[in-house]
Amino acid sequence: MKPSPFDYVRATNLTEALALLERHGEQAQILAGGQTLIATLNMRLSAPDWLIDITRIPGLSGITLTETHLVIGALTTHREIERSALVAQYAPLLGQAAPHIAHAAIRNSGTIGGSIAFADPAAEWPACCVALDARFVIQALSGERRVSARTFFRGLYDTDRAAHEIITAIEIPRERAPRRSVFMELARRHGDYAIVGVALLGRVDQGRLSDVAIGYVGAGATPLLAQGAMAALEGQAADADVLARAKAALAQDLDPSGDLYNSPATKRHLAAVLLERAVKQLLA
């Protein structure tokens, strides 16, 4: 199928893009990497009047380091993140997750900002950002604001971003000594959206875990922070009892809905299996 007709404008700077968004409101959609949007246009699942292409706006791409944060421009592609030495050093979790995102040609075009804005609960970046306690820089004509990833995702494909706003960057807190991290997901074919996935961060000191953060992919309407499991693991040596408590806590933490091939119960089971495996790998 071919998309319904729409008009297209390539914004040359952020102010222009924001002004266009203000003018066209709900009739406009932002075109970033386009790897999800254009597929939905091709299926006529979405039929905006306007596409506002922000990909040529200077300054929205690239990975930099500030005193306090690792800053990833919204238009940075999955591929750039996958290969970034800065990411490998300061947020290795993202480098671990990147290879799971679709395939090479998609990673060359898809952007982290687009993935965050689309907010697919089965996508990798949102869950990683929740686990990393990242914040998103959101720009409107009226000004800039920052929102924690942990409050940004409100419901299925529903976020704190208003239609007239653009995500410009993802800021990940810098840690003096970055935590260890593990990213794991279960997909029946490489590159597919995962049945369920886990992003685990933590420190290991003499066998005990600390500063534990656990984000889940595909385990609810939004990317989820598994707070119960985090609490169960925090400060503990991950022996069988602790792992059992952490896995049990997932019952409260997660709220997966079924998909074509997996019931909620299956997803819960797989989420628990992944947690145990991720913790063991973190400790290894």
Binding site: M1, G34, I38, A39, N42, A105, N108
Partner: peptide, 23 residues
């Protein structure tokens, strides 16, 4: 035309892309 099969793979500025997912 939904970016899954790769039959439309072409290069843009030296990188492979899905030709159906780019206008």
């Amino acid at each position: 035309e939904h970016g899954v099969c790769g039959a439309c793979t072409v290069r843009v500025d030296g990188r492979i892309v899905r030709g159906c997912l780019m206008l």
